[in-house]
Every structure is written in structure tokens, then in C-alpha cells.
Design a protein around this nucleic acid. Structure first.
Lengths: 150, 150
DNA sequence: GTTCTTGCAAAAGCTTTGCAGGAAG
DNA sequence: CTTCCTGCAAAGCTTTTGCAAGAAC
């Protein structure tokens, strides 16, 4: 299922074209940066990565393109605590456990949310999206440190 | 267990005093607003409620006092999606399901998170706090509307 | 009196927007 | 050539901070 990065870039650019969007330098580079990341990036990080190759690209263009990509289902964003939102290819969607103390991120399979999702649906007819916000808490190391202090 | 509101105010003010904090007009009114709320309020809403009675109180004082109250365990804050954080008395802590479309909030008992919390602990040694961020998704009405559109 | 709090204004961090010039198709 | 995109600068929203004046104890 894993495509060559360059093929993956073209697949996404084709999707953009088919939706009537123009292929610009900033869009191509943003797509490349998202694929290279294979991970989460803030808008600021993505701007930096694009600007290393094309310094004139502005942050507002990155934000506008991320919004557009999100509308098309190419990327999604998630919130990992207090700072900036993080963006990633939709294909890489999964849940996150983020430590409130040290900020470390654990990626977790959706399966872990199944029981919660089922209960919310049966009891409250509410459809949870477990990806949009991380689950905050404490990682092993920070839990240990906290109990030392207390 | 439910105290008279005035007693509840005094209990909290006593806790502040015992920690060496001074009792000021803005603090007394903030405590009163939090108790009257019996619910979640943004810092801006709390500022407005305090300012109705004491117009000179500034938003920064509200923020500083909320921080202090949080350090003492009197209040907690949670995030309900994109806007401002919401504050509430610690006694009122519980989880939230927040609709991404209409913003409606469903309060849920912690029991719904049990299986998720247990799995995170056993598999990842991660201690989840299910209150700090709401679970986003779609309520019944908005799920219905979405499926109409699609 | 001394120390803690406050109001005000300014700044900070992230994101969005208005606009006129420039590029894509 | 027409419409879409972009850079820039400015503004928006929430929250934090510096500082000197004022209040609590």
C-alpha cells in the first residue's frame, strides 16, 4: 500500500487538480513536506520546511493551503495540549496520548478507543472522533516524578 | 453534601486564607461567580459577571486568580474545541462530549472512560486525565444533518 | 509598614483576513 | 485573459506580563 514518495506527491496533486485547484510551488512543496514528515508538524514547522527551499512563501499561504487540504480530506489537524495545532496526512490518523508535563506523545491504535466510542454512541447517540484532541495525562516517567514530589 | 452557597463561598475563602492569600473584592466575587455558575465559564464570561458588580476589575486579574485557584485545586480548566478555555469548580469535574458542528456539550460520568483509562495504563503505562480536553465529535442532530448532505 | 494584588497597557502566540500584484491554466 | 493564489501587513482572539499605584493584613 505504501507508495513511492514521488508517486504519493503526484496522487495528491492530481486530487488537487481534479478539484479545480491550481498547482503552485507552495502547494507542491507543502505536499512534499507533509509526506517527508511521516508525522505531525505544526504550521510553523511546515512553513520553515517549505521556506528552506522557497524563502518567499509566507505563513499565511501555508495556513490557507492547509485549510484547503483539510477541506479535501488530504490532511487533518489535531491538538496536543496548549500550543499550536499539528497537521498530518489523513492516512496517518490515529489517537494520541500526550504527557502534560513533558509533552511526549504516544501514538495509539484506534482500537483502544472502541469501548468509549461504543458507549458514547449507545448512551448518548454521540459519535466521537478520538483524533481531533489528544488524550492528556502523565507518562510513566512524569508519573514517577510526581509521586516523588508528593 | 451540597452546602449553602454562602457557606461554600466561605469554605473556599478560608482555604485561600490558609494558604496565605489575601481576600480581595475581585477574589470574593470570582468565587461567587464560579459557585453561581454551577457550570463551565470562560475567563471572559467570568470577567463579565464580576464586572457587572465591580466594573473596575480587569481581565488580567481574573486570569491571575483563576491560575492561583487552579494551583490550589479549587478550579480546573478544560478545552471544548477551538475557543477559549472553560473553568469550573473542581468538585464539578467530569468528562465532556462536544459537538464539532453546533458546539453543544454533553456531560458524561467518568465511568464511560474506564476501559480507555485501563488500557492506556496497562499497555502504555500512561495515566489519562479524561477531563482536560473534551471528546470532540458529532451530536445526534448534526450527525443526521451531515448524512443528509452526503 | 510590608508584602501581596491590582489595573492598565502592552506584548505574546497562533491564526485569519484584506488587498493589490502576480501566476496558473 | 480570466480566475485563482500569493505576499505582505495588519488585525483577531485568548492569554500573559511589566510596572507602578493601591489594598490587605
Amino acid at each position: 500500500v505504501t507508495e513511492q514518495p514521488s508517486t504519493q506527491v503526484e496522487t495528491i496533486l492530481d486530487l488537487l487538480r481534479s478539484e479545480g485547484n491550481r498547482i503552485t510551488t507552495s502547494r507542491r512543496m507543502l505536499v512534499e513536506a507533509l509526506i517527508a514528515a511521516q508525522d505531525h508538524r505544526t504550521a510553523e514547522e511546515l512553513t520553515g520546511e517549505v521556506q528552506r527551499r522557497a524563502p518567499e512563501v509566507s505563513a499565511s499561504t501555508i495556513y490557507r493551503n492547509l485549510d484547503e487540504f483539510e477541506r479535501l480530506g488530504i490532511v487533518e489537524h489535531a491538538h496536543f495540549g496548549h500550543g499550536a495545532a499539528t497537521y498530518h496526512l489523513s492516512a496517518l490518523r490515529h489517537g494520541h496520548l500526550v504527557c502534560n508535563e513533558c509533552g511526549s506523545v504516544i501514538e495509539v491504535p484506534d482500537e483502544i478507543f472502541k469501548s468509549l466510542i461504543d458507549k458514547a454512541k449507545s448512551k448518548y447517540k454521540f459519535v466521537i472522533d478520538p483524533h481531533h484532541f489528544a488524550m492528556l495525562g502523565h507518562c510513566t516517567a512524569c508519573s514517577a516524578n510526581l509521586s516523588k514530589v508528593i
